[in-house]
Amino acid sequence: MSTVKIAAIDLGTVSSRLLCAEMRNGQITASTKRTVITDLGERVDATGVFAPAAIDRVTQACTEFVRKAREFGAQHVCCTLTSAARDVSNGNELLDRLRNLGLVPQVIPGEVEARLTFYGVARDFANERIAVADSGGGSTELVVGRASDGGLELDCAESLNIGCRRVTERFFSSVPPSADELDKAAAWARAQFEPYWARLANRPERLVAVGGTVTTLVAMVHELAVYDSHFVHLRDLTIEQVEDGIDRMRSLTVEQIAQLPGIQAKRAPVILAGAIVVRELMRAGGYGRLTVSENSLLAGAAATIYEAAMSGRTVIGWIPELSSW
């Protein structure tokens, strides 16, 4: 079967991402990825609307993404929006701009987001029952299941409205926050996660986490002056390392956090809250360590785009609307 070129665009609460991939027989044979921190979810938790500046940032990023996808020769393009877009009343302002770029934007439900993420991650853990957590800016997707040649077996897929941007804006009056604000944020986060884990009679031994918070924590722990995705992928992160990161950041300003090795300046305002979310996720689930994956929704989206384009059927049961140029 010939190679098919696809592009997947994912517009999240904190970052906007593009994956351009060559695919053959459902597998990625070559790819490039671009991530821009656009903070689409800025003040969404408080206002329920996209800020004009946030819409402008995402539009600018997507203009570049479309240019790169065209240069790449993408035959099929999918554009998804997640938590922030599910929460706002003025989403059409952004969706109309994306349509003007030639995209077909889709605001996907949390369960679809969870399935796409699991599909992208689980290929590295074939036939192993795992828990997958995607902790983003506005939500955290949790899925337990197994991937095998027969497809996906999912026990529990859920999207919770808890993420680094949401926690920062809801609980921190400033950065650094007070000790009381940190304690309240941690207690609230843990209370969100406990019911999910309580419903599982048999929790998997392995927790796999994706997203900018956990990849940044690995970069900070290992003091990566230059981010190395190959080093980060499938690296373990212990709860003690997460605790150390929190202790290191809890009394620092945003500017001081940005100076730490491995921290992107634009992620500095939300990484402390993100670390608290990850710690409470681990505590609630009883996990002393997790495995960090560089694969995520984009990898799952790539496989799903290929399946939809080739056969009109997909493993996860969701059919994306595609732009074809």
Rank of each mutant, 00 (worst) to 15 (best):
P177T: 04
S178T: 15
A198W: 03
A157E: 06
G150H: 03
D183I: 10
P195H: 01
F171L: 07
T168N: 09
V218L: 01
Q192T: 12
M220V: 00
D180N: 10
C164I: 06
D149H: 04
P195T: 07
V221R: 15
A157D: 06
C156D: 12
A187C: 11
V221Q: 15
G212N: 01
R166S: 07
A147C: 13
A201L: 08
A179G: 05
W188A: 14
Q192H: 13
A191T: 11
S159I: 02
L182G: 06
G211Y: 05
W188L: 06
T213S: 05
V221I: 12
G212K: 03
V210F: 00
A147D: 05
P204G: 03
A185E: 00
R203A: 08
A201Y: 02
A198G: 06
E158H: 14
D183A: 14
G163F: 04
L160Q: 12
A179M: 07
A201Q: 13
S178G: 13
V210R: 03
A187V: 14
N202H: 10
T215L: 01
S159E: 01
D149G: 15
A191Q: 14
E194C: 11
R190F: 00
V167I: 15
Q192L: 08
A198C: 02
N161I: 12
N161R: 15
N161D: 11
V218Q: 03
R203F: 05
T215A: 01
A219P: 04
W188M: 12
F171V: 09
F193D: 00
L154M: 09
R199G: 09
L200T: 03
S174I: 00
S159C: 08
E158Y: 10
D183C: 11
D183N: 14
A219G: 08
K184N: 13
W188S: 12
S178A: 05
A185W: 00
D155S: 14
D180V: 10
V210W: 03
M220A: 10
W197K: 08
Q192F: 00
A201K: 10
D180P: 02
R165H: 14
A147T: 08
C156Q: 14
K184M: 14
A186L: 12
W197M: 02
W197F: 15
S173M: 11
C164S: 15
L160W: 09
V175G: 01
E153H: 06
A147H: 07
E181D: 10
R170M: 10
